[in-house]
Every structure is written in structure tokens, then in C-alpha cells.
Amino acid sequence: MSTTLRDILDKLLGRQPASAKTARDRLQLVLAHDRSDLSPELLDQMRREIFEVVAKYVDIDLDEGEVSLETEDRMTALVANLPIKRCQAKKPSSSNESSLPPKEQKATLTPKQESPLPPKEQESLLPIKETE
């Protein structure tokens, strides 16, 4: 986001920021939900289930992780940002999926701190088609 003289003045004087930006932010959020036709409860349920599935394989930071809808140019995307706590992979509880030896699993996952990738690339972007 860019900063203007006005923003600085507002901060110095302790004034409320101009309302146009608030309007824009609120609209973008509400439209992302309108366009996806997902209720907040369903979105929350989906978020929990996504966490559960990922947590089966790796240790993720549940407090830092977030799943949200973002919208741009009439395209809505499901954006999940799930920071990985430990490099060591968990053994999935349903053991039939883990046929790989532990060493190889370890190599496919990078710990958050030493990640060579910028944070953006850790996100998974899933575009959502409009449902009307």
C-alpha cells in the first residue's frame, strides 16, 4: 500500500484515516464472499478441515496459518498460508498412505526458517469458478 502526506498527517494528529480506503477494503472482503456463495460457517469448517488434513502430514503453526478468500478482477481465489513448524514429517495416522521411507519425506519439506522460497510461494492458490 502507498502512503500519502495525508496519511502521515492523519497519524500525527491522531485522526481517523479517510473513509474511501475503508470502503474499498470492506467491499473487497464482502464481494469475495458474495461471489463464492460460501457462508462464514462453511468457510470456517473448510478451514478446519484443511488444517486437519495438512496437520496429518506436517507440523503446522495453527496460530499463524490462515485460509481466506481473496478477489481481484472478478476472480476469486482460495488462499491458504500454512507455515510449517518443523522440518520432520509426521507419520500419517492412516498408515497406508506413507509408503515412502522417512528420509525421503524429510527431503521434500523445508522448514519455515530456512525456506529458500519467499513466503508468497508457500501459498497455494486455488482459483474458484463463479457459481452463478
Binding site: R6, A18, S19, A20, K21, A23, R24, L27
Partner: peptide, 11 residues
Amino acid sequence: MANQEMLAADD
């Protein structure tokens, strides 16, 4: 709009 108290046309 100039005072940024109204959504701009670009917005």
C-alpha cells in the same frame, strides 16, 4: 473524492 472520503472511479 479529492478528500478520499468517496470511492474513486478507479476503485
